[in-house]
Amino acid sequence: MNGDWTWHGGALAAAQRHFGGDARDWIDLSTGINPDPWPGVASLAIDWQRLPEAGALTALETAAATSFGIDPAYVCAVPGSEIGLRLTGRLIGGAAHHVVPAYRTHGAMIAASTPVGADDMMQHGDTLILANPNNPDGRCLTPDMLAALLDRRDAGSWLLVDEAFADGDPAASVAPLVGDGARLIVFRSFGKFFGLAGVRLGFVIAPRDIVAGLRDLLGAWPVSAAAAAIGTAAYRDTGWIAATRAALPRRAAALDAMLARRGYTATGACPLFRLIETEGAGALFERLAHARILTRPFAERPDWLRLGLPADADALARLEAALG
């Protein structure tokens, strides 16, 4: 299996080279990104000749904080949550465990981190890194479960929660628990829920000393003028956010029903993607790719295949036909 597809979703160019066709022939279900992006980008006026103003960054972080239900003092905008994870890992260091399976960066952000299964994560008191909802299996922990994990931390250790897929259900977030007296850091991604991964925008929600350390590492102009403008306007669009939070579970249920008709059981509580477990996952990936549908296989779990939401009824029907 080509590492271009098992390392990360979104390797559409590699799929085109290997299986043929051009971009318009393909349905990309490999990323778990909202296929209906926030629609306001085209109406924004962005001055590409000027550096971002300091006030634009403040407006962005305030809009995001309002959406997250937290104080803006604890929010630091970063050029993608990937960079936020890695820089935070550099800041805190020390002994750590990362819950697997999960996003690969969780294992790379702290050099001394070792993997631990979800069933054993309560057994360790050092810094713990996990995602909620988790990727790729969609496992969700309740805020009470996460609070118990936070209470379990040893002195000087942290609970690091990657909430890249949490925008669909704000009640599941522990971001409101972040404060100067809490050993908790939360990471949020803009691109997944808003369907605009190319903007490269994320947020670290942390005690103020961590935020200050991140700002020192990031330097001036941590995000582009475009990212600031798009993020600010999108987080202020509460009507679109509410409608999308209502629509995504319905669309995920339609995907579940279709997969069940074809003999597959979908797992996961995140409405942006589903995981299926089947002995022939590699062959199924190849068959779908020959039908110009890109999904996400896993080198370490050849029985897994992750599928994002199809963009519309036609895409769902085309996926069903390809599944046979």
Rank of each mutant, 00 (worst) to 15 (best):
residue 7 W to D: 14
residue 9 G to W: 01
residue 13 A to E: 14
residue 19 F to Q: 00
residue 23 A to L: 04
residue 25 D to Y: 10
residue 25 D to K: 05
residue 30 S to T: 02
residue 30 S to P: 03
residue 32 G to S: 07
residue 35 P to Y: 06
residue 39 P to K: 04
residue 39 P to T: 05
residue 41 V to C: 09
residue 44 L to Y: 12
residue 45 A to L: 13
residue 47 D to P: 10
residue 47 D to G: 10
residue 53 E to V: 10
residue 56 A to W: 12
residue 57 L to H: 08
residue 60 L to T: 08
residue 64 A to M: 11
residue 68 F to D: 01
residue 71 D to W: 06
residue 73 A to N: 03
residue 80 G to P: 03
residue 83 I to G: 04
residue 84 G to F: 02
residue 84 G to V: 02
residue 87 L to F: 06
residue 87 L to C: 07
residue 93 G to V: 07
residue 99 V to S: 02
residue 101 P to C: 07
residue 106 H to I: 00
residue 109 M to D: 00
residue 120 D to E: 15
residue 120 D to L: 14
residue 123 Q to K: 14
residue 136 P to R: 05
residue 139 R to K: 09
residue 148 A to D: 13
residue 151 D to W: 03
residue 153 R to F: 11
residue 154 D to Q: 13
residue 161 V to C: 04
residue 164 A to H: 05
residue 166 A to R: 09
residue 169 D to P: 00
residue 169 D to M: 10
residue 172 A to D: 12
residue 174 V to F: 08
residue 177 L to C: 06
residue 185 I to Y: 05
residue 188 R to C: 13
residue 220 A to H: 12
residue 220 A to C: 10
residue 222 P to L: 11
residue 223 V to T: 13
residue 226 A to S: 15
residue 227 A to E: 05
residue 227 A to I: 06
residue 234 A to F: 10
residue 238 T to A: 13
residue 242 A to Y: 01
residue 246 A to G: 08
residue 247 A to I: 02
residue 255 L to R: 01
residue 257 A to S: 14
residue 268 G to E: 01
residue 268 G to Q: 03
residue 270 C to D: 14
residue 285 F to D: 00
residue 286 E to C: 00
residue 288 L to Y: 00
residue 296 R to P: 00
residue 296 R to S: 07
residue 300 E to D: 15
residue 303 D to Q: 13
residue 307 L to G: 00
residue 316 L to N: 04
residue 321 A to V: 14
residue 322 A to N: 06
residue 322 A to H: 10
residue 322 A to V: 10
